[in-house]
Design a protein around this nucleic acid. Structure first.
Lengths: 183, 183
DNA sequence: ACATACATGTAAGTTGTTACATGATTGG
DNA sequence: CCAATCATGTAACAACTTACATGTATGT
């Protein structure tokens, strides 16, 4: 659904090889659209077959050879079409909230440790986003592209802030709770 | 992954038929773990095969006959095990943020209308959550189960609040932006 | 008797995940 | 030349989506 468009966006920002893309999907783009290298290679093949991208002719396509990909005009057009199109919000799936709901039924035994772990993960991610903000969006510069990208980063920062607060709040409630929901 | 556990939670909260479950996954549980009726029927079959649930003997299993499902002790144990187990956070995939990032490259032409539509959807969802909060969690009552379920609902409210704010902020920036990112 | 809604399912296709395979390059 | 790493892939499977199929109950 959206993976090809995530890849087109990434390649427009900077032409890359499959592995470079994979690395970029571990951060940046991957913060809101994750993908594994297998998905990426398969999708690169499809995008090439559809005439949306091409391999830069620099190196010939041998097996262990690095290949760099470039977006063709048809690919840019497809991305623009997709970006402007009306899209239904995709359904949420959040494991933590589901687990809390399950814990309300079967008891909170053993959950606390993992909540602390998740809190630490979210704090780390929040710190990383803030570093990126300081580095890439110092006060002053604000071109159109910068403003949009900053907006996306702010969403990440605010979401991680929400989760750290929510988890902190959840953990505060914990000591008072019995082990099996029998209040 | 988590669908069987979402179903076990729902059935522990209240034994239901396949279609009743489907309805409940359109709200309540579905707010943080969506599922279609096809997924649900298939998973009910698996859960029965594994001995986690059983069909209540009330009506015989004819084709158009309503069947009601009940969680067996093994099912409750499995849910408790899953709830307490350590789990990696699943990767995010957010279409709106991806589209903003794409718009930063190919231009914002045509995006605004759909952002307004999403804003309306999130406002509606937020209003619905607030109604549920007033109805189900009036000040005063707070058993252990209530507190946990309220916590989950608060997450929904805060997340929708975040999205309405973010979308409002995004739309405020729009009129100043050129159509194709050439600032 | 017919249309409609209810209720449970099947089939096919796409996407995402996990495990493995293969060649090239680099450092010791 | 050997191990480790880089780089690109294949295969098999699991999850999710979309479209369709089938039977039951109800109202007219």
């Amino acid at each position: 659904m959206s993976l090809p468009h995530a890849i087109l966006t990434a390649l427009l920002e900077r032409p890359s090889s499959g592995l470079e893309l994979t690395r970029r999907f571990d951060k940046s783009i991957g913060y809101f659209w994750s993908a594994t290298h297998q998905q990426i290679y398969r999708e690169l093949g499809r995008l090439e077959a559809e005439g949306f991208i091409r391999a830069l002719p620099a190196a010939q396509p041998a097996r262990g050879q690095k290949k760099s990909w470039d977006v063709l005009p048809a690919g840019r057009a497809e991305l623009a079409r997709w970006t402007a199109a009306s899209q239904e919000p995709r359904p949420h799936r959040d494991t933590l909230l589901l687990r809390m709901r399950a814990a309300a039924v079967v008891g909170t035994e053993g959950v606390e440790a993992d909540l602390r772990r998740h809190l630490a993960l979210h704090r780390r991610q929040l710190a990383e986003y803030r570093e990126i903000e300081e580095r890439d969006f110092p006060p002053g510069r604000d071109g159109a592209q910068d403003r949009l990208r900053h907006l996306v980063l702010r969403a990440g920062i605010d979401l991680e802030t929400f989760w750290t607060r929510w988890l902190t709040h959840a953990l505060e409630e914990f000591p008072d709770l019995p082990g099996d929901g029998t209040a």
